[in-house]
Design a protein around this nucleic acid. Structure first.
Lengths: 262, 262
DNA sequence: CTGTAGTAGACGTATGTACGAGTTGAGGAG
DNA sequence: CTCCTCAACTCGTACATACGTCTACTACAG
C-alpha cells in the first residue's frame, strides 16, 4: 500500500513543462529516500488522479526517469525504483602473475570470494579474420588470422560482461587456446607456456550507451550505460600477443587502477 | 532535400512494435552510413507519410534513438544524427613527475598538443567539511576540514569535465592551494613542496547516466553517459594527500591504463 | 484442498487532435 | 538593396480515447 508518499502539486506559474515537474517530484522523492530501491512508484492511474493530467503526460514523466536509469517499468506490475546490483570492483592487479598461478580463472575466484555464484556461458571459438582495430592492435597484416574466443560472464545468473579474446593463430595453434576449456590459468598461462613472457597490459576504456545486441546480451535495463574495455597484452619484447574486447554492464562495475607518480 | 534515403516498409507480419521497427530502420541507416554524422533525419511529417502511422508513433521511435545517443532533436530545425566530438585520450602516465616538472597543467598542455583550445572556468575555492566518502578516502575524522577546489574544463569552448579536488586543511594551509592560481605544476607540486613525496594514485571509475546538474554543466546531449572518476593521491608513507572527484563527458574521453603483468 | 477460470489493475501500443514555440526563407515594404 | 514581416515547416507539449498484454488475486468448481 502506498503508505504516505505525498507528492507536491504542480506549479501553474512555472514555465517548466508539466511532465518535467512531475518527473522532478518523483526524482526528488527518490533522492530524499522517500522512495527506496525496489519501492513501487504510484501507478499511472494514481498519478493521473493526483495531478489531474492525461495519461500520456504521466507516461512522459515516467519515461524521463526511466531513461535516467532511476526507475524500471514492469509490465502488468508497476513502476519500481531501480535497485543497483552489488558492484564488482576490478582492481588493476587482477592479472598479476601470482593470481594466474593459482590456476583458477580470475573471474571465478573473485566472484566466489565476494559470495556470488559465477558462471560462464555462450563460449564460442572461431578462427576469423580480425576486425581492423583488432588487427592494428595486434600488429597483424591484412591476411593474418586469429582465434576469437567469445564468452559471457554471469553472477548469480545475471549477465554482467561479454568478452571476445583475439589471439594470433601463430600463437594459438597447437594449444588449448583453441579448446573451450583453455586449462589452468587460462589463455595467459598457455601464451606464456608458448614462450611469450607477459610483460604488461594496456586497457582502453570508453563509456557509452549499449547497442541493441549488447543490451540484450547483458539484459540491461533502459538507461544503463556500458564500459567498453579493450585490453592488449604485451610480451616482454613488446609484441602484442592478445587483445580482449569486453563490454561490461555499467552499473555492475567499478574499475580501479593504480598509477605510479614517478 | 532528402536526396534518396529509402527506408523499408513496415513488416505487418512481425510482432515487433511498429515504433521499434521504425527505430530499427533509422538505426540501420545510420549504421550503414546512409545517414552520416550531422545529417538530417527525415522530419516527423515525412516519416508519418512514409509509414502511414500517427505522429506519436514516429515520435516514440525517434525518442528511442535519442535515448540511445544516436540522434539529437533541435527544436524548429529537425532531428540530426549526432556527431561525436574528438575523443581525448587520458594516458595512465599523465601524472608522471616528468610532466609535472614542465610547469604546465596537464590539461592545458595535452589539449594544445592535440590542436584544441583549452580553457578552465567556474573556479571556486571553499573550506568545507568533506562528504563522507571523501573523508574516508583521506582518512580524516568527522571534524577535519578540507579545501575544495572546483573547476570546469573546456575544449574549444565545449565543456568536457568538471572536477573537485579535496586537500586536507593541514596540507593546504599557507600554500597556493588556497588561491585560484595554484602556481606552476599545480597543486601536486605544492603538496610535494610541503614535504609529501607523491608515490602513487588510485583511480576508481564508474560509468553512469549524468545527474541533472551534471548534464547541464557539461552541456550533455540526451543519451550521453559520463565517467565518474575518483582519484586518490598517496604520499610515499601511504598517507592520502588529495582526492579529486571528476565527472567527464562519456563521449569525449578514452581512458587508457597500463597494468604490469608481474 | 486444489486447480482453474475470471477479473481487476497495471503498463504497452497506437490513433487523432490541438496548440505552442523555434527556425528558416521568401516576398514585400521602405 | 536592405530590412522586416509573415508563412511554412519543424519539433515540443498536452489532451482524449481505445485496445492489447501481462500480473496477481479472487472465487468458484471439482
Amino acid at each position: 500500500m502506498a503508505t504516505s508518499l505525498t507528492l507536491p502539486d504542480l506549479d501553474p506559474t512555472s514555465d517548466r513543462a508539466v511532465f518535467r515537474q512531475i518527473a522532478d517530484h518523483i526524482r526528488q522523492a527518490i533522492e530524499r529516500g522517500q522512495l527506496r530501491e525496489g519501492d513501487k512508484v504510484p501507478s499511472e492511474a494514481q498519478l493521473m488522479q493526483h495531478y489531474g493530467v492525461a495519461r500520456m503526460t504521466i507516461r512522459h514523466a515516467l519515461q524521463v526517469l526511466q531513461s535516467e536509469g532511476l526507475t524500471v517499468a514492469e509490465h502488468g506490475r508497476g513502476v519500481f525504483v531501480r535497485s543497483h546490483p552489488p558492484m564488482r570492483r576490478l582492481a588493476s592487479d587482477r592479472f598479476a602473475r601470482r593470481h594466474r598461478e593459482q590456476g583458477k580463472a580470475a573471474f571465478i575466484a573473485e566472484t566466489e570470494d565476494a559470495g556470488g555464484k559465477p558462471s560462464v556461458d555462450s563460449i564460442k571459438i572461431d578462427e576469423v579474420k580480425p576486425p581492423v582495430e583488432i588487427a592494428e592492435r595486434l600488429s597483424l597484416g591484412p591476411n593474418d588470422r586469429v582465434i576469437a574466443r567469445s564468452r559471457r560472464y554471469l553472477i548469480n545468473g545475471q549477465p554482467v560482461e561479454t568478452a571476445i579474446s583475439y589471439v594470433p593463430m601463430e600463437i594459438a595453434k597447437d594449444t588449448k587456446i583453441m579448446e573451450p576449456d583453455s586449462g589452468p590459468g587460462g589463455i595467459y598461462a598457455r601464451i606464456e607456456e608458448k614462450g611469450y613472457r607477459l610483460d604488461h597490459f594496456v586497457e582502453d576504456i570508453k563509456c557509452r550507451m549499449p547497442l541493441r545486441d549488447e543490451a540484450r546480451a547483458l539484459k540491461l535495463a533502459p538507461g544503463v550505460p556500458v564500459f567498453h574495455l579493450v585490453r592488449t597484452a604485451y610480451a616482454a619484447d613488446g609484441t602484442p600477443v592478445e587483445v580482449c574486447d569486453t563490454v561490461m554492464s555499467g552499473d555492475a562495475y567499478v574499475l580501479s587502477y593504480e598509477l605510479p607518480a614517478r
